[in-house]
Simulated scan of single mutants.
Amino acid sequence: MFKWASYFLCSFAVLASKGSWATLQDNNQTVCILKDAPNQCGSFCLSALDPMQTNLDAIERKQGVITSQLWALISRQDVQQKSLPSLDYELRRHTEMQEKHISHLLAVQSEMQALQKEMLHSILDVYKKLNAHQTLVQESLDKSITKEVFENRLEGVDKQLLTIGSTMAILMSRSVDQPHTVQNQSLQSPQASLQESLSEIGSEPPQFEQIGSRHFFIEHNLRLNWTMAAQRCRQIGGHLASFQNRLEFNAVTAKLLTGDVYYWIGMNDLGQEGQFVSVASGNPVAFFDWGYGEPDNLGGNHDCVDIAHAKMWDSKCADEERFICQSDNEV
């Protein structure tokens, strides 16, 4: 194809040259007549065809790219056509599962409605029975005692309750001042039992000693959990201790036993995690001196604060440890 194009262009050049030669003859000018056009015009024709050849190459490359893209599209189409049956199967399967699920939901809804009706009937039956029982009780009361007698008896019971409450208040106040004077075995309420247990712990209330500007009591022997330690401090007229500054903290820790010996103090975050308050004043704690990595709330139940190695640690409130009391409720 390239050879024929070369011949064509050379022939065109010869004709053009002949036309020019004829024109030049009329003007009495001399020209070079081509005797071997293919050989004499080869270079010219090649130079003239070079851009065309370049364009043809570019077109062929583009055609190759388009052909590749077309084959890719055909292949993709084939894959999609092959996957259509599986997609159709999955769609039918999903539709069947959805229909089964809807049927199951409808069945459950029907069962729930039936249970609701049954529960409603049961509640109505119970309500009727209660009304009937209430009527019988009222009739029995009306027959047994009059309204006036019932009110008089109720008033007497109220007076007895007030008397018992006053007596308990007096006994509780006495038990705080003198732990061994209250031994009444007839009052077995939880508070009385707790107070009686604490009364058996020690004899006379210990003496507070002045450390810095305040008074503290340090229990080196008895070990209690945090709640019982707080109750013991209240029993002797104080509270579990908190500290107002480092000077006071250092003065107290200097009197503690060394080593792995822990002392409860009056700080906890039982109300809100991370918000430590003083059990004595109910205010946020004024001074901390935590150990390394503390407070870590290890296990999610370290809510009470103790002292060891002259540092503060958060520990389980159920642990039994020594404790420190303060005489005031200002800190």
Rank of each mutant, 00 (worst) to 15 (best):
S11W: 09
A286Q: 05
F44E: 10
I211G: 01
D50A: 14
I33H: 14
D50E: 13
S281K: 01
F288V: 01
C317F: 09
T258V: 10
Q185F: 00
E148A: 07
L154I: 06
Q326T: 04
V108Q: 10
L154A: 11
M112G: 03
N283E: 07
D88H: 14
E148Y: 05
D142C: 02
S278K: 08
K311V: 04
P284C: 00
K147C: 14
K143W: 12
P51I: 10
L187F: 05
A37R: 11
Y262G: 06
N27V: 00
N184T: 08
E90N: 14
K35E: 13
Q53W: 15
L256P: 05
L247R: 12
R92D: 12
S144E: 07
G266W: 09
S242L: 03
T163A: 15
Q231W: 07
E196C: 13
T167L: 09
N329D: 11
V277D: 14
C45L: 04
S166C: 03
A230V: 04
P38W: 02
E96V: 07
S173Y: 02
N250E: 11
V176W: 03
M267T: 05
Q244H: 11
R153M: 10
C32G: 05
F288N: 01
A132S: 15
I164A: 12
Y127F: 14
A192P: 04
D36K: 13
Y292P: 08
E273N: 10
L9V: 07
G293W: 03
T135A: 04
R93G: 13
D26M: 12
K18I: 11
A254T: 03
N250H: 09
E321W: 10
I74Y: 14
K62A: 12
W264Y: 02
A16L: 05
D177C: 04
G271D: 13
Q195F: 13
N27S: 02
L15P: 06
A13W: 10
Y7W: 14
Q178G: 13
Q113Y: 15
R174E: 08
Q134E: 03
D57V: 11
P205F: 05
M168N: 15
W21A: 15
G299D: 03
G156E: 13
E219D: 00
H309A: 10
V65T: 11
T253F: 10
A230F: 01
S11I: 11
L73E: 08
I164V: 14
S278I: 11
R61S: 11
S110D: 13
M228R: 06
S197N: 09
V305Y: 10
V261T: 07
L198P: 01
Q25T: 03
C45S: 08
F323D: 00
D289E: 08
H180G: 06
G266P: 00
Q191C: 08
A286Y: 00
R322Y: 05
S140C: 06
H94C: 06
L222P: 01
A5K: 14
E96P: 02
F276S: 02
A114H: 15
M97F: 09
I236F: 01
A251T: 05
Q244A: 10
K128G: 14
E200K: 15
A72F: 04
L256G: 04
S6W: 09
Q275F: 09
M312N: 01
Q178D: 15
D125R: 05
E118Q: 14
V137F: 08
P205E: 01
A16V: 03
A132P: 05
